[in-house]
């Protein structure tokens, strides 16, 4: 069975690139354009992997979303990755180096944009 991937990002162009690209690679992909849609799809679609943008409606929407995800029973079967342009040089200082840090942001990992579709594919194959 192919992996189910949920993309949550308010940037329509990123979804326009990644969704068809990953589908072509054989994944089942759903996209949400804000946190609310993301929550609904998480419950109905039951993804294996979630890529969540950080800055959406608010500067910390992604963190709030991850916190919510952490309280869902489906969360234990999913890998959650924060996917953001707001990385180390800009804005938040966070990392997923230790389990404590992971716990703090309620995510298993984070990826900094931009990341080429091929690199993203590589990441999913190796880490998810």
């Amino acid at each position: 069975m192919s992996k189910k991937i949920l993309l949550i990002d308010d940037d329509v162009d990123l979804i326009a690139v990644y969704k068809p690209f990953l589908e072509k690679q054989g994944f089942e992909v759903q996209a949400a354009y804000n946190s609310e849609e993301g929550k609904q799809l998480f419950k109905s679609f039951k993804p294996d992997v979630v890529f969540a943008d950080l800055v959406m409606e608010h500067f910390d929407s992604g963190f709030v979303l991850c916190h919510w995800l952490d309280h869902q029973p489906e969360r234990k079967n999913a890998r959650v990755i924060i996917f953001t342009s707001t990385g180390h040089e800009t804005g938040y200082r966070f990392s997923t180096q230790t389990s404590e840090e992971k716990k703090w942001i309620n995510a298993d990992d984070y990826l900094e944009k931009p990341i080429s579709p091929n690199d993203l594919l590589q990441y999913i194959k190796e880490r998810c």
């Binding site: 940037d11 162009d13 990123l14 690209f21 500067f59 707001t86 800009t90 931009p114 579709p117």
Partner: peptide
């Protein structure tokens, strides 16, 4: 400043992924 950095970086990330797709002959 953080918001500015994010707002500048977000469209670049989108452009970047489009161009990567084109250049990778995907």
């Amino acid at each position: 400043v953080n918001m500015v950095a994010h707002e500048l970086k977000a469209p670049l990330a989108a452009i970047h992924s489009y161009l990567k797709m084109i250049l990778d002959n995907a």
